[in-house]
Write a protein that binds this DNA or RNA. Structure first.
Length: 257
DNA sequence: AATCTTGTCAACCGCAATAGG
DNA sequence: GCCTATTGCGGTTGACAAGAT
């Protein structure tokens, strides 16, 4: 039998949205807010399924969308995040204010993929296309990251209010280990009323903002995932008690451009 | 000018995760 | 704990535009 369709397909429009439909959707959401996508179409007088309305709003009509070309900084950030997260477009989008997962996915498939290939980098594994035949499981899962971000790219600082650690550590470790400082909350997202904005100086994005807890130490993502001796954390707790941190040692001869 | 090819991106589809009863 | 409804995500498609022939 299978599951029932998300909506009565016989009575819904498909394809490109008209201006009238857009206006109805915008007006409804302005009046009632987001959510209840299932019942929204009928309530808003739209012959669309809820899914379609949600997608239209999120990808096109939301007022906080940036639109326009991606900057070099965004490019670099997407590449870095893809290297860590793989095709988790919504997670990547969460780190790029004003960008949607769909937009990033499209941009990746049409621009960045080609860009990486032209540089001789496999866009899936983020490794040089030559000699990348045998990959370990962690590598296939995107744990290994290519070093494709130019040293002078200001991603870490400008795009992320200083959370990316590019300061201070201009020692040997800086050349040996790329600290992406990609923090993921271990705990449920805290609603704004519970979290004074100034409370978490080390986390900028709302989605990554951990709540206070009794956690006593951060966790290296490699160790958490069970990869033995990642080398970067040496099993030591990470100062920020609420985050995973990912480190990837550079390989011999592999440098930051 | 007409046709073909390629690139772009909005939208759809199916599945998985989550919420609620 | 189970079942169903709903939401969210990622892969894919198809319409349209731009460029090439």
């Amino acid at each position: 039998m299978g599951r029932s369709p998300c909506c009565e397909k016989a009575h819904t429009n498909k394809g490109a949205w008209t201006k009238e439909e857009d206006q109805k959707l915008i007006a409804y959401i302005k009046a009632h807010g987001e959510g209840c996508w299932r019942s929204l179409p009928s309530a808003a007088g739209l012959l669309r399924c809820g899914k379609s309305c949600r997608l239209r709003w999120i990808n096109y009509l939301r007022p906080d969308l940036k639109r326009g070309n991606f900057t070099e900084e965004e490019d670099a950030l997407i590449i870095k995040l893809h290297g860590l997260l793989g095709n988790k477009w919504s997670l990547i989008a969460g780190r790029l204010p004003g960008r949607t997962d769909n937009e990033i996915k499209n941009y990746w498939n049409t621009h960045i993929k080609r860009k990486l290939l032209s540089r001789g980098i496999d866009p899936q594994t983020h490794r040089p296309t030559t000699g990348a035949a045998t990959l370990t499981a962690p590598q296939r899962q995107g744990v290994f990251i290519p070093i494709t971000v130019p040293r002078d790219t200001a991603v870490s600082d400008s795009a992320d209010d200083g959370r990316m650690s590019s300061d201070a550590s201009h020692d040997e470790d800086r050349d040996r280990c790329l600290d992406l400082d990609l923090s993921m909350s271990l705990l449920p997202h805290r609603s704004p009323k519970q979290s004074p904005p100034s409370e978490s100086p080390t986390t900028s994005t709302a989605a990554a903002t951990p709540s206070t807890s009794s956690y006593t130490g951060g966790i290296c993502l490699c160790c958490h995932l069970g990869f033995q001796s990642c080398g970067a954390c040496s099993g030591q707790p990470i100062p920020n008690p609420h985050v995973f941190r990912y480190f990837r040692p550079l390989e011999e001869g592999q440098g930051i451009d």
